[in-house]
Each structure stands twice: as structure tokens, then as C-alpha cells.
Design a protein around this nucleic acid. Structure first.
Lengths: 192, 192
DNA sequence: GGGTCAACCAAGCAAGCGCTAGTGTAAATC
DNA sequence: GATTTACACTAGCGCTTGCTTGGTTGACCC
């Protein structure tokens, strides 16, 4: 029970943990499995993390933080039209879902395994990300690009995007850009 | 290790198991917790189910079967227009997500905990349900009601609908009919 | 060249896990 | 009235779990 910093070593261990959590699920991943994957013994693991819970929290935090950073960058880099911003958000979301796939799958599937304390902290991060989305959806509504209830539309869009982790095959014929384009086309009433 | 029938007793036990699986997750739900919830001792549980796995499979089968039945009924009862059929499917999906909420949440979150044998069997059920969707999406495409890639559109729609289990509040102001209506409006290019 | 410190290890504890074996019992069946 | 069946019980086996303890190692610092 020594440190809880974010050393590069810890970052790397977190990345490896994420992969195991995806493969096996959080509860089925034992500290011994984690240690073996990391090339250390199970006891040594608790030098880097207070307990197993903290590893889960670290994985999810890493993924969510990256998503937030990428989304902000995408919005700054793109054209200011409502459609371009909508597309940029969708593209960024799908890209981060791909590059940090393990962390995001864990966040989606194992969120409820978080203890209340960690959940509170990470909720704020997630809310920050989702409010970015609602903002862009608002702009699209005001621009008349899409219609409907702001709350429902943003939930439907998030659902469609997050569901992709269950079926999207990066080695298949469709790029994440294709998906983003098609999704925006579907809700903005233009031909694909 | 006696029977694996589908007696009413077993149905009731399955329903109770579903609730615990949602609350705690499959792996964290112990056979002792299940037994207590059912009002019996842990040993007695194995008179009704071969093992813990079989309880999970029973929960998921129950939910998926109901979804299939409800979807078929909805399609038979509704108007034959592409839009009406699309709406009927969305409404049926949301209703079954609500009435069999526990079973569906388990199916969504714990699918990967199924052993290969059970997974194979249940995959067929799920495929049958999804092919209903693709059929209705096809009709909507042919009718010019929606545009885009058949595969992508059906995945996006399923994602938007399934995601509702994470945020939909049945005691809130919106009915499942509202949701179905809004979703269809969103993708068919009409005002809500 | 003694002190510091992050990183790791070996060994194991207490608790909890899924599941089994063997038995009791009341109702249904012959 | 004997037998079977369905359902429940008690007791516990063999194993795994998350985590702790006490100690070692090697790189860096002054």
C-alpha cells in the first residue's frame, strides 16, 4: 500500500489489466492472473494499487479521460458548421472506442462493479463528456439539421455509437469514418 | 441433479435469480445468495438446476423467448405499412425491455459469462429475433422511408434501443410509445 | 559507502466459493 | 399399503479468492 501516483509503470500495468478485464470480466480476473500478465507476483501488485477495485477505477479513468481530450480536440480542429461538429464528435467517439477499446469496453460492462466512491468521481468525468455531446446536439437542433427531443436524441445517438463495440470489426471493409458519416446521414435526413 | 424441465416452480426461481443477477452481477451472486432469495437452502438449488451456469442460461432464454414472441405478435397486429411495422417493432422492443427488464439486462451484460454450449443455443434464438428486425428495416429501405446501409442502420437502431436500459426511467414523463415514436421519427425524416 | 526508496518476492491466512453426498418427508401413483 | 417422486435439508470437501506480512534487491544520492 505504497503509492497511488500515475507513474509510467502504473500506466502500463493499467493497460494490461484492461485487456484481461475485457477477456475475462472483472470478477473472473484474479489478482494472480493480473500479476502473471504483468510479469510480477501477485503480492507485488499491491505495491502499485491499493486493491483490485483501484485497478478497475484506473482502467476506466484512463479511457474516459482520453475520450474527453479527443472530443475537445476534434471540436477545435473542425469546421464550425453544426454538421461538421456533429460529424467530428461521432468520428472522435468511434476512434477513441477503437484505440482505447479495452478501457471503453470495461467502462461499459464493468461500471456497476465500481464502489460508490470511485463511481462518484468517474461520473463527473463522464458527465463532462456527455455534456459536450448535448451541446453539439443542441447546435444541430437549432440549425434545423435534426429534429426532436434534445434529451432523447442524444441518448439514442450515444446508444448507437456505444453499441458498436459489440459488432464493429476494424479489419472489415468499413472505416470509423464511414460509420460516423452514415450515422450522421441517418439522423440528419440526407442520402448516404 | 434431477430435472431440467420448465416447471412453474423453476420459472419463478429463474425470475428471482434474474433480479439478483442484475443487482450483483452473475459472478458476484453466490449460490447461497440465490438460495436465500428463493427461500431454500443452497443445496436444494441443485435439484432445480444442474449448476449455476444453467440458471444464467435459463434467465437469458426466458427473456429472449419473450422478446421474440412479442415482436411476432406486434407485427401481426399492426398495419402493413413499412412505417407502422417499424414503429411496432420499436414499441415491442421497448415494452419487452421494460416488462422483462431483469432478464434483458442480464442478457446484455452477462452474455459473455455463458459457456460455449449454452451460448450456441441462445445465439440461434437471438439471431431469429434480429433477423425480424433486419426484415423490417429492409422493408423500410425499399419503401424509401429510410436510407443507408441495411447492416449499419439495423445495428444503429438496435444500439439506440438497447441503450435505453441504462437511462430510461419508467416512472418518468415519457412512455415507451413516446420513445418508439421519437426514434422512428428521428430516422425516417419527419418532425416529431 | 552508508542511506533511501521504488519495485519485487515467498509464504500463507481467513474467508468464501461451487458443488456433492446422504438423508428426511409429504404427496402422488401403483 | 408399498413404491416412487419431488423437494427440501444438513454437513462439509476441496479449492480459490483478495490481500497481508516480512524481507530482499538494485539503482541512485550525497
Amino acid at each position: 500500500m505504497n503509492v497511488m501516483n500515475d507513474s509510467p509503470r502504473r500506466k502500463e500495468l493499467t493497460r494490461q489489466a484492461a485487456q484481461l478485464f475485457v477477456q475475462e470480466g472483472f470478477d473472473r480476473t484474479t489478482v494472480r492472473m493480473l500479476a502473471q500478465e504483468m510479469g510480477i507476483k501477485s503480492g507485488s501488485l499491491f505495491h502499485h494499487f491499493r486493491d483490485k477495485q483501484e485497478i478497475l477505477a484506473a482502467v476506466i479513468e484512463e479511457g474516459t479521460q482520453n475520450a474527453l481530450v479527443m472530443a475537445k480536440a476534434a471540436l477545435e480542429d473542425c469546421d464550425q458548421s453544426a454538421e461538421a461538429r456533429l460529424q467530428a464528435m461521432a468520428r472522435a467517439h468511434l476512434q477513441t472506442l477503437l484505440t482505447d477499446r479495452n478501457a471503453h469496453v470495461v467502462a461499459l460492462y464493468e461500471w456497476r462493479r465500481l464502489e460508490p466512491g470511485a463511481r462518484d468521481h468517474l461520473s463527473h468525468l463522464r458527465d463532462a463528456y456527455e455534456s459536450l455531446w448535448e451541446q453539439v446536439i443542441d447546435e444541430a437542433l437549432e440549425a434545423g439539421l435534426i429534429h426532436g427531443d434534445r434529451f432523447l436524441v442524444s441518448r439514442f445517438v450515444m446508444g448507437a455509437l456505444n453499441w458498436t463495440v459489440r459488432w464493429y470489426d476494424p479489419s472489415g471493409p468499413r472505416s470509423t469514418d464511414d460509420l460516423a458519416h452514415e450515422l450522421v446521414a441517418m439522423i440528419t435526413h440526407r442520402a448516404a
